[in-house]
Design a protein around this nucleic acid. Structure first.
Lengths: 302, 302
DNA sequence: AGGAAAACTTGATCGAGATCAATACAGGCA
DNA sequence: TGCCTGTATTGATCTCGATCAAGTTTTCCT
């Protein structure tokens, strides 16, 4: 019997529970101690009365929105059910690093509510690779290769996640051809998304990256003249490969080039002028191929 | 009848030949004119007497090395044969832009001899994305999505290529489960390779990129102390996201950090010192997952 | 072998973007 | 409501890497 003393709660966990199979692992400091989050230990209520590999159940009303993902919509119904039966749901508080790069990829993740930042760390530095919003999958490739995660993930707010064991996933695409075709399409789209990303980084300077980002967001939101930035500027800056200070300055300078920024509000004042600077390119700025978890974009505006 | 007048050669091409289905397309300037390469028009000998979609045959002795690729080694023999029967081979001279980004991805390419540079262009600038050596595939993702190429490709030397029609490829992974699993694995590996690439670009400065590149090459070649750079420095510079001038300077400066460069020869003089600077990281520098065409690396040394 | 073209190197200068520092602002929580 | 923490902005300065220019070496082609 393992006990977790949170000060005002005392949780007891069945000894046969295998922590390594649960995402709780991410804040298990050692064999016996959980990381403290704020003043409370984060202990999902499901944890105290579940058997290994089960976790919180996926709620029935959530199944349709998962099923609707390109990854799952074409597979046989029975197979989808089987996959969901072996999966479980988990709620994470804000600011929790739920995936640490280098860890084995035991689960495919699906964001149902909230949002998740995927980021990379190296030598003390870190950078935002993408922000994932509902309903999307992430870290598919690592699960398939049964390889360590290349990116870390942290919640930007309270977030509900579905976890599908990688092994079930890998078994499934050998059994269900339609599913394997979906995986192929998803991976190919993800690959192409990162390539576009790499092209922007290597071919455009920071001013051009910002300009094309602003223009693209406008188009994604349906060609609107005004929209709200879907992420914090510090994340946008990191995603675009620049410092927050420089993003701030660049946004100000761009006011001479057809776009006005007021807080998180973006107003396109002269689309042609902005486009002349951004040189939008179908092969970089899309329209993207459809993919539910491309792993290298920020959410769209609105 | 279409005629091509090269000055000293006059080629005649059967009118039923559909250019759009041939890679010759890449140097067809308009309906009637071919681009001139140097002093000669490049006209593959196969072109004058082949029917559409056939091209030069794949030679029997080449089949085993193609079959040996991870992408093809697990599929049913009959299916592999069928795929090869619908494919054809083509020899390209040096310096030919055989794929232009934005064109529809009609063929999966396999390099059998020579080498190919994949590069991206935007707004007059261009950068090297990868260099492909035998025996490898490239632009798999575009073929699968039936989408335009995101990168251009040009031969760095005389190069022999096998072209597999994308449509046959897509039909095949619905018929052959083992093949679809191979495609999944290949794509996942490719995706991860580009992510590593993006991480290097965003997290390391140019000195660190060069240092880690040099170190990684040494390891790939088996931990050797000395090796020859597998690509020209101008390509390496572009791949690493810097100018040739700066690469040259950086290489010189690194002599104080444990590595000596003499022409294309690299000699590691103090591995620990170099590693202290490069901070090699398994999640960026590999070892990579096995993939025959990752689309974002340079060839290994040796 | 000779000559042209391309690749590489080295130096001088410039500028984009990072860093440092200080302040203003907003959101979450008692 | 007011505090407090994290985010955003603005300015001053510095540095890394780009650009420009010139010279050297190598490669390739006739």
């Amino acid at each position: 019997m393992i006990e977790i003393n949170t000060g005002n709660n005392l949780c007891q966990i069945a000894p046969e529970l295998k922590f390594a199979n649960l995402c709780v692992l991410t804040f298990l400091l050692d064999e016996k101690t959980f990381a403290i989050l704020g003043l409370d230990v984060y202990v999902p209520q499901e944890l105290t009365n579940i058997s290994p590999n089960k976790g919180g159940q996926v709620r029935p009303e959530e199944l349709p929105e998962i099923r609707h993902l390109h990854l799952f919509r074409d597979m046989a119904h029975a197979n989808f059910e089987a996959l969901m039966a072996s999966s479980y749901a988990q709620n994470f508080p804000q600011g929790l690093e739920m995936i640490r790069q280098g860890d084995p990829a035991d689960f495919l993740h699906i964001v149902l509510e909230g949002s998740v930042e995927l980021f990379a760390r190296w030598s003390g530095r870190e950078c935002t690779m993408s922000v994932v919003r509902p309903v999307s999958t992430f870290i598919l490739a690592a699960c398939i290769r049964d390889a360590p995660y290349l990116m870390s993930a942290r919640t930007l707010e309270r977030t509900r996640i579905i976890l599908i064991p990688s092994s079930d996933l890998r078994a499934m695409f050998r059994r269900d051809t339609e599913f394997s075709v979906s995986v192929i399409n998803e991976l190919a789209a993800c690959y192409r998304a990162v390539v576009r990303n790499a092209k922007t980084l290597k071919l455009r300077n920071s001013r051009e990256r910002v300009a094309s980002y602003l223009l693209r967001q406008s188009l994604l939101a349906g060609g609107v003249v005004s929209y709200t930035l879907p992420v914090e500027k510090r994340l946008l800056a990191s995603y675009l490969g620049m410092t927050p200070e420089n993003l701030s300055r660049t946004l100000r300078m761009l006011e001479a080039d057809g776009v006005k920024i007021d807080g998180a509000r973006v107003i396109i004042t002269d689309r042609d002028k902005l486009a002349a600077l951004a040189h939008p390119d179908r092969l970089i700025d899309g329209p993207d191929e459809i993919a539910d978890g491309n792993g290298s974009a920020l959410p769209r505006a609105e």
